[in-house]
């Protein structure tokens, strides 16, 4: 089963455009990523630029309204993610525990919905569409 490990660094919500992690932090993460690769569980990972370089599109008024980042109202924003393939939630949590994260970072572990998790009526909708997950 697939899980996403979502990295949530405190303070990243208001980080200036072009903010980059410290080289030492990157080096530690590379070692960790290598471990995930050696274990055969890593399907992909990426770091994300801060919200100040992105935008939010809200749909409260019926059609998309664009707000450029940073976003005053959000405290917890993504800094990056890993997609892993492991046998259980316990294993995903154990991998997250091993991450060399800093004291200001949180990792949220979430299971990816697989087609097989969906009930028949949803699978039928996905199938009818011709573009599945």
């Amino acid at each position: 089963m697939r899980f996403m490990m979502l990295m949530i660094p405190r303070g990243y919500d208001q980080a200036a455009p072009g903010t980059m992690p410290e080289p030492e932090a990157v080096r530690r993460m590379m070692v960790y990523n290598r471990e995930l690769q050696h274990a055969g569980v890593l399907l992909g990972c990426d770091g994300l630029h801060p919200p100040s370089m992105g935008a939010r599109i809200s749909f409260a008024e019926g059609k998309g309204r664009v707000v450029d980042g940073p976003f005053a109202e959000s405290r917890e924003v993504l800094g990056g993610y890993w997609m892993i393939d492991v046998g259980s939630l316990a294993e995903a949590i154990e991998w997250a525990r091993r991450c060399p994260a800093g004291p200001d970072e949180i990792i949220e572990v979430r299971q990816v919905q697989e087609l097989a998790d969906f009930p028949q009526e949803i699978r039928a909708v996905v199938a009818g569409d011709g573009i599945s997950a």
């Binding site: 089963m1 290598r34 690769q37 050696h38 274990a39 055969g40 569980v41 890593l42 393939d85 046998g87």
Partner: peptide, 17 residues
């Protein structure tokens, strides 16, 4: 299915090396 997943992980381990 666990065996299939395990085989894929083993193959990815070999790939990493």
């Amino acid at each position: 299915p666990l065996l299939c997943a395990q085989a894929l992980r083993l193959a990815r381990t070999i790939l990493s090396l």
